[in-house]
Nucleic acid binder design. Sequence first.
DNA 1: CTTGACCTTAGATTTAACTCTAAGGTTTAT
DNA 2: ATAAACCTTAGAGTTAAATCTAAGGTCAAG
Lengths: 159, 159
Amino acid sequence: MYRIGELAKQCEVKTDTLRFYEKHGLLSPSSRTDSGYRIYTENDAERLRFILRAKAVGFTLAEISELLSIELDKSNWACADVKGMVDSKLAHVEAKIAELKFFQVSLQRLSNACCGGPESAEHCSILEALETNTDNIKCENHDHHHDDSQYTKNCQRKG
Amino acid sequence: MYRIGELAKQCEVKTDTLRFYEKHGLLSPSSRTDSGYRIYTENDAERLRFILRAKAVGFTLAEISELLSIELDKSNWACADVKGMVDSKLAHVEAKIAELKFFQVSLQRLSNACCGGPESAEHCSILEALETNTDNIKCENHDHHHDDSQYTKNCQRKG
DNA sequence: CTTGACCTTAGATTTAACTCTAAGGTTTAT
DNA sequence: ATAAACCTTAGAGTTAAATCTAAGGTCAAG
């Protein structure tokens, strides 16, 4: 059982944000005190964490509402409806994962191609890494050496 | 070589959006015609696609700017700087992937638990799926049958 | 028994990211 | 050679998602 300020602090949001989510139907406290204070349960907290996670990966509040409506309307829906909706959201999530893996590969490639030393990063760029396909990595070959293996271990392939 | 309208159409954004990105330093056309029209190269288009992908997975324009600044400033930076920044962004991307996999698992679990038939979805909910750990899945056991295996194949485990 | 940290509401303001408007110049098709 | 469909700028308006303000009620500590 949390009051609004406690839940807000725990989840690192403002109390305003919680009232905003309530007004927009995303999260309502399970009860109120006699004097009208909001009382949130652990279940409410779980729901909030779900909302914040969804937001962090780029879902809009409208999309999050839709995801959560699966919970709210469950007894009025048929399994077929729920499954259809879930599977569509699942496809959406999987598409996002694929997009992010694209960034991951690009950034990893750039990180690998870059020796990490004090040289100019003339040939280190995300877009160069994007243009390069799969494993044929441009790698700067500077004409000097510096102390250690840590910097140069990833610099061996050349386009 | 594209004019603003052509690039906008190709990437399904408004021309306003491209002018907005230019004003905010995310994407400038490589040149202009004598009469002042913007001329975008294939490289510019690639950069735009990068921006749109980054946006789609929840990066703000400020974060995207930062990602792209690796490109802009490359000759003024040392490899060590670039690598540090890239690795930090990489960690960010990997965290997002982890978050999304959390959703993927939850949704997949829900999809699996839900028989997909015409029954009430009483026990189908995202939050129930979130609460359930790993493989001990609640699954409604309706007292009737319907046509085929397609609906019931995933309904065999019970908590 | 009052001070200060909480809570309430309604409504105004802010921020990011567009999106539109107005007033005019350019290009292409008929 | 002129209408339609583009382009230019500066600046105003919109939308989502908060965030702040004002005016006041609640409650535990000293």
